[in-house]
């Protein structure tokens, strides 16, 4: 094992570039999947005729497919259907849609957990359905969703490594190139990359714990 060669300045810089791409990818996908996930979750909660059913079926299919398949499909299947995406955006689209499907389930059950009595009280006090949703159900529900949503974000960050199959230059891809130099640096490189992922995710989970324990 050769830690010196594995952690040479060139290799470290190259891995950091990969980490930068991983973080960019995760950030964009987190924002998009949160927005889309909330919208889908509310649609499913609100029981809009036809639409809620349709969204429900779509979410069910996407949730139950491997993300690896979705990423590959977004990159090489969609173009056959006329939608061309660069590796970065293919990864974004696949990650956002997949994680949004997961988040929509969290949002829906979070909203469902808001007690009937609370809702009825709000309506009785003269709030419209829309107002009740905005001022009562969403704030209460969202607070309860914070922990599962954050762990979904951690999953997302980990899942960005799957973009390796579409040759996107993120952390795992760059690690593969570094590991190609010599067999003796494979294990040191893997350990470093694992540590990088761990550090980012652990930081994220600490932030989440802070949020959770914040007085409501």
């Amino acid at each position: 094992m050769d830690f010196g060669q594995a952690y040479s300045p060139d290799n470290l810089r190259f891995l950091m570039e990969g980490l930068g791409m991983t973080l960019r990818l995760a950030l964009v996908a987190i924002i998009l999947s949160f927005i889309i996930g909330c919208v889908l979750g509310v649609i499913r909660y609100a029981r809009v005729p036809v639409l809620s059913k349709l969204v429900g079926i779509l979410v069910e299919i996407i949730r139950n497919l491997p993300l690896l398949l979705l990423i590959f499909f977004a990159r090489f299947g969609l173009p056959e259907l006329g939608i061309k995406l660069s590796p970065f955006w293919a990864a974004i689209v696949a990650l956002s849609i997949f994680e949004a499907a997961m988040i929509s389930e969290i949002v829906r059950s979070g909203l469902k957990s808001v007690e009937k009595g609370t809702i009825e009280a709000a309506r009785a006090s003269g709030l419209s359905y829309m107002q009740t949703l905005r001022h009562i159900i969403l704030p209460i529900g969202l607070r309860r969703m914070v922990p599962p949503i954050v762990s979904q974000f951690i999953s997302l960050l980990k899942d960005t490594s799957l973009a390796v199959i579409i040759s996107l230059a993120e952390l795992t891809h760059n690690a593969n190139i570094v590991m190609g130099q010599d067999i003796s640096i494979v294990l040191p490189t893997l350990l470093l990359v694992a540590a990088l992922y761990f550090a980012v995710n652990y930081a994220l989970s600490i932030v989440a714990r802070r949020l959770e324990s914040k007085p409501t």
Binding site: V28, I83, K84, S86, P87, A90, I92, S96
Partner: peptide
């Protein structure tokens, strides 16, 4: 998202 995909190339 689809439009962005065509004109910006993060990757």
């Amino acid at each position: 998202a689809a439009n962005n995909a065509n004109d910006s190339k993060g990757g």
